[in-house]
Nucleic acid binder design. Structure first.
Length: 659
RNA sequence: GCCGAGUUAGCUCAGUGGUAGAGCAACCGCCUUGUAAGCGGUAGGUCGUGGGUUCAAUCCCCACACUCGGCUCCA
């Protein structure tokens, strides 16, 4: 009997009888590995455990605890979901069902336009568990397009995928169903259920089970909003019940940080429906935090040699025609207003107006880089279904700057902007960044190849000077130039896109911007768009979630609350508050109309950084009892000492994590 | 914009084809408080808005507004 020799990831070699499978290899290595195995990697390609080993292959085992392994579990669970739906809803069309981050989904179309409801999910989940208990094997077969079309004769979406694959027209939206080589494979896991799939899958449904169905949602077939709307069921699946529970717990924790909930509870911001969708009002406690953010931003921009400008909310349509916004983004703008001398629009961006300021007089190379800065209010008509608290809003404020510079200055300027951005974001408690470089989409862009190349390489150079890792997003740039987007990770690891630095050679052309060079000739400047917070509203929402409402002391709406133990201490408490306010701190007092324990609890629930309790001892000794958020109570602290501590804490923006 | 689910007291939520309830908050008393919920009472709602069905609608139907979960979009 002949043998195959394969190489493992550690470089060691193993010999197995010819015809052995990846699963046999796992068994030969060890029983624990065999138990954890869900698929294999054979010469770089993911395969089923049942795949036959080829001589000389490089093989590794994919286990359930790895991300690729969970991906397999999730994908297989999606198949079981489709099988359950097809059984429970005869005539259901099933389209695609990929694994996604933390879970999976599957898209269906039910006969007669029926939709899923919550009870359906319960029934579907029960049926899935029956299928899993039945330990049905996933059996792979490769078939011809003709045979696949016959197998899926009653499944219009599957037929469409098969036709695209066999025409060589498959794209990323077909991934998971078939591979780009045009090989069509199907997986059968019972007599009555077969699905079109590239694989790999777990060997039997018994390997699944640590899953939960989560929600139903509409989703367009192939993501095309002109196409049919399918019913999507989302679920999550893990390698163990412990991992599943942990994931569900993480979701609960994230829900507790929801900025909309916190904004309501903490009386920071609201969205009165009388005002209209996507429009927020800032209540006093939200507004003071915003003011501090803005004051800090202004201070940093002054230090950074930016010049402040102000521009109106409305502008004549001619301006937006000139800037190209009406051509490219009219759908995202509020509808026009007809006025006596023309048509006006709410501004969706500040840049056209900043261009007018630049163009207002002749400019010299000696003025460049010219950095204009504005906290500019803009209005964008976001479609009704896309609004999302402060994170997607129709009226917002950009910390917007437009920098006009020469092409030679570009790389230096971007380099210093990167320093500036990261320094500001760190002050707000973000330390984990990811950078994306978006490049040209030739189908949707203006400017010459040379300009795009030079601007893109300037952005790249700035990233590389800082030694920053970055991902290139091909074709993601705006129509007017390449950009760097900066994502941050928050306290619980979620990613938020915040800052952006964008090169623009379109607006300088459109506005015919020029400067007199050292050579005496006129030259065209390059413009950079740059926002750090992006939108103040959105940034505030992200901060709320990042800190779970427990703002660091420098940002907290109320930095300290004074609680007199009894009415006899009211005067002392009021005097203490006045003293602290005179030192620039935000302090309030709650008199002894309720018991102390109750008032302390209220202050803690409000996440106030310092609760100051004053009683007889304090009146006698000019001291204060300090109860910090997340720290230990100290009695008898001298007022002067507390003022010093608070001063240091605010200036160093020490973050006191909530317990 | 599309699919689905919602909207009841200031907040969080029960509830019913015969015009509504809890907890917290508010207000008023009592308690005089030393580090995370003291006790009692009072008040508070055109049940999102507008139509329709019905003897009767907060409940059923339709439209609209807003919210939520997705899809699509995001300069």
């Amino acid at each position: 009997m002949s043998a195959v020799v394969v190489t493992l990831p550690d470089g060691s070699q193993r010999s197995l009888p010819a015809g052995s499978t990846v699963g046999d290899l796992a068994v030969s290595i060890g029983s624990r590995l065999a138990k954890a195995a869900v698929a294999g990697l054979l010469d770089g390609a993911e395969v089923d455990l049942g795949a036959t080993l080829s001589d000389g292959a490089l093989v590794s085992i994919i286990t359930a605890e790895s991300e690729p392994g969970r991906h397999v579990l999730r994908h297989s669970t999606a198949h079981v979901l489709a099988q359950a739906v097809v059984q429970l809803f005869p005539g259901a069309q099933f389209s695609i069902g990929p694994a996604i981050e933390d879970g999976f989904y599957y898209d269906f179309e039910l006969p007669g336009g029926r939709t899923f409801n919550d009870e359906d999910l319960v029934a579907i989940e029960a049926r899935m568990r029956e299928i899993i208990r039945a330990a049905q094997p996933f059996t792979r077969a490769e078939v011809s397009a003709e045979e696949a079309l016959r197998i899926f004769a009653s499944q219009r979406y599957k037929r469409e995928i098969i036709e695209r694959v066999s025409n060589g027209a498959a794209d990323s939206s077909d991934s998971g169903e078939a591979d780009a080589s045009g090989t069509i494979s199907v997986y059968r896991n019972s007599a009555e259920f077969v699905d079109l799939c590239r694989g790999p899958h777990v060997p039997t449904t018994s390997r699944l089970g640590h899953f939960a169905l989560q929600k139903v949602a509409g989703a367009y077939w192939r993501g095309n909003e002109k196409g049919p709307m399918l019913q999507r069921i989302y679920g999550t699946a893990w390698e163990s019940d412990a991992a599943l529970r942990e994931h569900l717990h993480r979701l609960e924790e994230a829900a507790k940080r929801d900025h909309r909930k916190l904004a309501q509870e903490m009386d920071l911001i609201s969205f009165p429906s009388e005002l209209g969708g996507g429009l927020a009002v800032w209540h006093p406690k939200g507004a003071i935090v915003r003011k501090i953010m803005e004051d800090y931003s202004r201070q940093r921009h002054l230090e950074g040699d930016y010049q402040f400008v102000y521009t109106p909310h409305l502008a004549n349509a001619n301006l937006f025609a000139k800037s190209g916004h009406l051509g490219y983004y009219a759908d995202g703008m509020y509808p026009p207003m007809e006025m006596d001398n023309g048509t006006y629009y709410m501004k969706p961006m500040n840049c056209p107006m900043h261009c007018l300021i630049y163009a207002g007089r002749q400019r010299s190379y000696r003025e460049l880089p010219l950095r204009l800065f504005e906290l500019g209010n803009v209005y964008r008509y976001e479609r009704a279904g896309t609004l999302h608290g402060l994170l997607r809003i129709r009226g917002f404020t950009q910390d917007d700057s437009h920098i006009f510079c020469t092409e030679e200055q570009l790389a230096d300027e971007i380099t210093s902007i990167l320093d500036f951005v990261l320094s500001v974001l760190r002050r707000f408690g973000f330390h984990d960044f990811e950078f994306n470089l978006s490049t040209r989409d030739p189908a949707k862009s203006v400017g010459t190849d040379g300009m795009w190349e030079r601007a893109t390489s300037a952005l790249r150079e700035a990233l590389e000077r800082h030694g920053l890792e970055y991902e290139v997003k091909d074709g993601d740039a705006a129509f007017y130039g390449p950009k760097i987007d900066i994502d941050v990770r928050d306290a619980i690891g979620r990613k938020w896109q915040l800052s952006t630095i964008q090169a623009d050679f379109n607006n300088p052309e459109r506005f015919d911007l020029e400067y007199r060079g050292a050579d005496g000739a006129m030259h065209r400047p390059i413009m950079l768009h740059r926002a750090l917070f992006g939108s103040i509203e959105r940034f505030f929402g992200v901060l709320l979630e990042h800190y779970a409402g427990a703002f660091p002391t420098w940002l907290a709406p109320v930095q300290a609350r004074v609680l007199p133990v009894a009415a006899a201490h009211h005067d002392y408490a009021d005097t203490l508050a006045t003293t602290l306010r005179s030192r620039g701190f935000r302090v309030d007092v709650v008199h002894a109309d309720e018991q102390l324990g109750k008032r302390i609890r209220t202050a803690k629930v409000e996440k106030i950084p310092h609760v100051l309790v004053v009683g007889d001892d304090d009146v006698r000794d000019s001291t204060v009892g300090v109860n910090p958020r997340g720290g230990d109570v100290r009695r008898g602290v001298a007022i002067a000492d507390f003022v010093d501590e608070l001063t240091v804490e605010v200036s160093e923006s020490i973050v006191v994590e909530e317990q």
